[in-house]
């Protein structure tokens, strides 16, 4: 599959209070961004587990983006610090496995609709550059 045909699929985890609101704001403001993202709503980014990220990648997602409130702003006080720790450890392992560039963590406040759209645009481009379809590229050819 050539780079021009490849459309990556990105699973995004969004917390109800900040990042999901930012995504809503992008919508209300009619800021356009590529349709490659699929959003999973949770109450707090601290609900997201490394297992969920692994599942997304194993089931066919080309990349995963975890989003939440900026540190210090978590609606549940300290949830996002746990998210950061879980992501940091997961990234350590994924880097070893050669998959580190597919998972990202980014904070969005409820007012950052434009920034979210911009982030999606550049993330999609980056994944297109680096990854030509996870499924087709590895010798084992998936599971």
């Amino acid at each position: 599959m050539s780079k021009s045909e490849f459309e990556p699929r990105i699973v995004v985890f969004a917390c109800n209070w900040c990042s999901y609101a930012a995504m809503d704001l992008a919508g209300t403001s009619r800021i356009q961004y590529p349709p490659n993202v699929r959003i999973v709503r949770v109450m707090c980014s601290s609900r997201v587990t490394p297992e969920m990220v692994l599942t997304a990648l194993a089931e066919g997602a080309d990349a995963v983006l975890i989003t939440g409130c900026h540190p210090g702003d978590c609606h549940y006080l300290v949830g996002n610090y746990k998210t950061l720790a879980r992501y940091t450890l997961l990234k350590n392992v994924l880097d070893e496995l050669g998959l580190g560039d597919r998972v990202r963590l980014e904070w969005f406040s409820a007012g950052e609709g434009e920034r979210f759209a911009q982030y999606v645009r550049s993330f999609v481009e980056e994944i297109k550059e680096r990854v030509v379809n996870l499924q087709a590229s590895t010798p084992e050819g998936g599971r």
Partner: peptide, 8 residues
């Protein structure tokens, strides 16, 4: 308060 951190 239903954050889910414990479940994770």
């Amino acid at each position: 308060k239903g954050c889910g951190s414990c479940a994770a």
